[in-house]
Nucleic acid binder design. Structure first.
Lengths: 252, 252
DNA sequence: TATTGACATTGACGTAACGTAAAGGTGTAA
DNA sequence: TTACACCTTTACGTTACGTCAATGTCAATA
């Protein structure tokens, strides 16, 4: 898949200006320049951008990021493991901040007392490092599954952003489906991924989910020509493929 | 307890310069100035600074923070409860990012496949969150919770046929709207048809209908840029056109 | 008492990571 | 061929401070 600046921006949730800026400072250069001067980005650049955004999320400045990712010794897989540890630490700090606000609410209700210092717990970076030193690998074992479960739970109780999320999910369904159809295997990982995304979309639309209704809906996509057209426009045969993928998905 | 700039900074984990800057922009003024010109902060200022840092943590810019905390209607306790909700949402987003990095690690190990879009899950969400921080509150204040909650309650109990009809209706709304906008006349037959289709769509989504809520929702389409973008992508100015058409439709 | 060193003050300029606007070329669908 | 949404470069604007610089203050110590 190839991307222009705006497409890549939409994919990653950043502006086209940001992508041009990243080119300007030499942190993310396009794979090639089209005959008309357009920046074209490919798979390698998508993956690098993901790395960059992980670092950015963790508060690393772009100059440092540049040095890190352009270093010949840069090890992407190792970096990801470090991101993981840092993100877990960030979560710990966020938990402290959440406790802080809960305590402060209790304070306003006169239920407890608090020192001034306590009122700023979770803001200080220092605490992050302490936590990181204290725990480390244990955190992963402790939170590993829990984290994944929570991420899934997220989809069920987001409320105000449903409209937006629905749009983005349906886009994802189409995107995944487009790639999945090429594999020709509805039971494969991509096919099942598409079915899973589709399930998530349904859950959001209906507020609940059950397998039978899901399978029925997928069948309808094949029976109703309007829906068939909707899905087939991304790839011929996509509606049938999705129905088959969902049939497998819901039967296991 | 009284604090000078540096002491307060150490307490809160920020620099003395930051505290002076907050004085400069009028966001946190000292309780008094000592005989030698030193800024002296007291209990009230400590609590206000805590509030400011909560907002800052949630990505609110200082200018907005100033407007919020200096507003005569500012309710500290209520603000804390909002902080709590937003921080929990932030944690959910962080969990998505953590899940993302875990999945990406699995990808490098060849255990799973991932779409490009998946590689940016948890980053994008942040944009939505920021958007919501910016606009969500205003929208709620202006239109009340029920407008959003109702559009969210969306389809708890919808049959397959309803779902089918809903999808085709929303398509028809967009289609009709696209042509209606070209006429330039919201009160014309096409404009009114779009409004009527929109009414049917709402009736289906909400399970009921009333004119006031309809007009409010249409107004929201103009005020909230996410909705505006959704309608304007079919035709620039479509959101405004639809609002006008609905205004006329609901007033007769 | 004089000195030291860590604090405070007000400018004022620097900077990171973009946003935004201007002026123009490109791709494609109607 | 006209519209329109995309692309380009250039360039100045903005936010939230960091970082001197020049100067005054406070508390402890030699």
């Amino acid at each position: 898949m190839e991307y222009t600046v705006q497409k890549l921006g939409r994919l990653a949730g950043i502006s086209a200006r940001t992508i041009r800026y990243y080119d300007e400072i030499g942190i993310l250069k396009p794979a090639r320049i089209s005959s008309s001067g357009y920046r074209i980005y490919g798979q390698k650049e998508v993956d690098l951008l993901q790395q960059i955004l992980f670092y950015r999320e963790l508060g690393v400045d772009l100059d440092s990021i540049k040095k890190i990712v352009t270093a010949p010794s840069f090890d992407g897989a190792k970096a990801l493991r470090e991101h993981h540890i840092k993100l877990l630490a960030k979560r710990e700090q966020l938990d402290i901040l959440i406790k802080n606000v809960e305590k402060t609410i209790a304070l306003t209700e006169g239920r407890i007392e608090m020192t001034d210092s306590e009122k700023f717990e979770g803001f200080k970076q220092k605490l992050i490092e302490e936590n990181e030193a204290k725990y480390g690998k244990e955190i992963k074992e402790k939170y590993g599954d829990d984290v994944i479960d929570k991420s899934n739970a997220y989809l069920n109780n987001m409320s105000k952003e449903d409209f937006d999320r629905m749009n983005s999910l349906s886009e994802q369904v189409l995107e995944t489906l487009a790639e999945a159809v090429k594999t020709g295997d509805p039971s494969g990982p991509l096919g099942q991924k598409a079915a899973d995304l589709h399930k998530q979309w349904i859950s959001l639309c209906w507020g609940h989910y059950n397998k039978e209704a899901h399978a029925n809906l997928a069948q309808m996509y094949v029976d109703d020509e309007r829906f068939t057209a909707y899905y087939d426009k991304v790839q011929p045969g996509a509606a049938v493929f999705l129905r088959d993928a969902v049939k497998i998905y819901t039967s296991k």
